[in-house]
Design a protein around this nucleic acid. Structure first.
Length: 476
DNA sequence: TGAAATGTTGGGGCG
DNA sequence: ACGCCCCAACATTTC
């Protein structure tokens, strides 16, 4: 039956892998190949923590493949060139890959498909990208009706997970370059790559009557508790399939012991649907990658103060809830979703800095950085996106801190200089008297920054800037 | 998946 | 006893 190529991109798993299953169904011998694309490595939207996670993930996948009698072939270079060479070396008739939807991925795949026999298979999402449409055939731009239609669609393969192959035969003698040792994954990054770890985390989150998924409705918002699944980096690289996670959410909903537990599992399912919503938005409206979905807001006159941006990046804005989250991001490559909304609101509304600056910084540092979800999240906060927060919804960083980190435990974890600041001041330490600052061992302006902007003033400025943009657009 | 500003109500202090 | 004021608590509107 011949040879097929399984072109691995963001599907680093053996269980429930549709392109792999398609390749195995098509040929006796399958070549698992990953092409390390220098164009991607050089992108300003890529950072070393995510690359390190990917490289470790490839090592883990290689080890899993070897256990099945195969191995990972790694090639560095332009995908079209490398795949054409591999086809010529091996005589492979077809290439199978999981469909990807970012503008760059689509251009790359179109170029490959023009000359090589490339078959793109669903798998990035539960439902095929582009299959969730209104009755008039147009894409949804509002989440709630999207989610309703999404839930009504039948599951591919009747919801059966594709089993892990027991053996993969590959042609011998194909050259593979070594998986690069650099960049290395810092021990500060709290994710260890690989399919086994992804499945372990999934089980820990959903299995049993008292699993965290049942407290998710409340727990997901708390910055000081581990209420989230921590699966985002694994979904980002397909170390677990979206469908497997979806089925786990459905089972948890079924097994919920009471209304509150059920609500937790349903809320979690909703987050998975937000992921698919933003993937669909980027697929149907690729222009959102560079510009606001709502064009009026591309007329905003941003302040774009470089020093303020640097203070935000480095976590020295003087607002503890913001600074703690930004230092956690720089150090570990991860940030709680609630914190992402808070720091994004602060950058866009309080500092009046273009959301694209924040989008790029997040992509450079997040281990789970995904173009669709990240863009969607930023445009949501900036009020420029589909079904976005209204422009006047501006987070107060003090109130958000008090609400979601009531004792300041998370703030103190990342800002040790606030260790001895009493709870009542921990989210607004600049209101301490000089004596209180001395007692807490935290002199404001010296041990910890004075707020770089007054929130009440900044709120008014943001409202005026957005209002001005709307007027400018309406006048056209 | 906000927060601030403004409006309303009602208990209690007080002359 | 009564009217008046204050203001906390809650509701509604506005940004």
């Amino acid at each position: 039956m011949g040879v097929a190529i399984w072109w691995i991109r963001r599907d680093l798993r053996l269980t429930d892998n549709q392109p792999l299953a398609a390749a195995l169904g098509h040929a006796d011998e399958v070549i698992p190949v990953f092409v390390l694309d220098p164009a991607l490595l050089a992108s300003p939207f890529v950072g070393s923590k995510r690359i390190a996670f990917l490289l470790e993930g490839l090592r883990s996948l290689d080890s899993d493949l070897r256990a099945l009698g195969s191995r990972l072939i790694l090639r560095r270079g332009d995908p079209w060139t490398e795949l054409a060479a591999l086809r010529d070396e091996s005589g492979a008739e077809a290439i199978f890959a999981e469909e990807d939807i970012s503008p760059y991925a689509r251009r790359r795949d179109a170029r490959v498909a023009k000359d090589l026999s490339l078959q793109l298979v669903c798998g990035l999402t539960v439902h095929p990208v582009g299959a969730v449409l209104k009755s008039d055939g147009e894409p949804y731009t509002v989440f709630t009706p999207f989610s309703r239609a999404w839930k009504a669609l039948p599951l591919l393969n009747a919801g059966e997970v594709l089993s892990r192959p027991s053996r993969i035969s590959s042609p011998p003698g194909l050259a593979s370059q070594p998986i690069p040792k650099q960049p290395t994954l810092s021990s500060d990054v709290p994710f260890s790559p690989g399919e086994a770890e992804a499945l372990r985390r999934l089980r820990a989150f959903v299995e049993g009557d008292t699993s965290p998924v049942y407290g998710y409705a409340e727990g997901r918002n708390r910055l000081d508790l581990a209420g989230t699944s921590g699966l985002s980096p694994y979904l980002r690289f397909g170390m677990v399939s979206a469908r497997q996670v979806h089925l786990a959410a459905l089972s948890a909903i079924d097994a919920a012991a009471n209304g509150e537990a059920r609500k937790g599992a349903e809320t979690w399912l909703n987050e998975l649907i937000w992921r698919e919503f933003y993937i669909a938005i980027l697929y149907h409206f690729p222009r959102v990658r560079g510009s606001s979905f709502r064009e009026a807001y591309d007329k905003i006159e941003w302040a774009n103060d470089e020093d303020a941006f640097l203070a935000w990046c480095e976590g020295r804005t003087g607002y503890p809830v913001v600074d703690a989250a930004m230092r956690q991001l720089a150090q570990t490559g991860w940030m709680h979703n609630r914190a992402r909304m808070i720091v994004a609101s602060f950058l866009v509304k309080d500092l009046l800095i273009d959301w694209r600056w924040g989008e790029r910084w997040f992509m450079q540092h997040l281990v789970d950085g995904d173009p669709a979800a990240n863009n969607g999240g930023w445009q949501w906060t900036a009020g420029t996106g589909t079904d976005a927060a209204p422009y006047f919804r501006i987070f107060n960083p003090v109130l958000q801190g008090q609400k979601y980190d009531p004792q300041g435990a998370n703030v103190r974890r990342w800002l040790p200089e606030l260790d001895h600041v009493p709870d009542e001041f921990v989210h607004h330490p600049w209101t301490m008297s000089v004596e209180e600052q001395a007692k807490a061992g935290c002199k404001i302006g010296q041990d910890y920054a004075l707020p770089i902007v007054d929130h009440a003033w900044a709120r008014t400025r943001a409202l005026a800037a957005y209002d001005q943009a709307k007027r400018a657009h309406a006048a056209l």
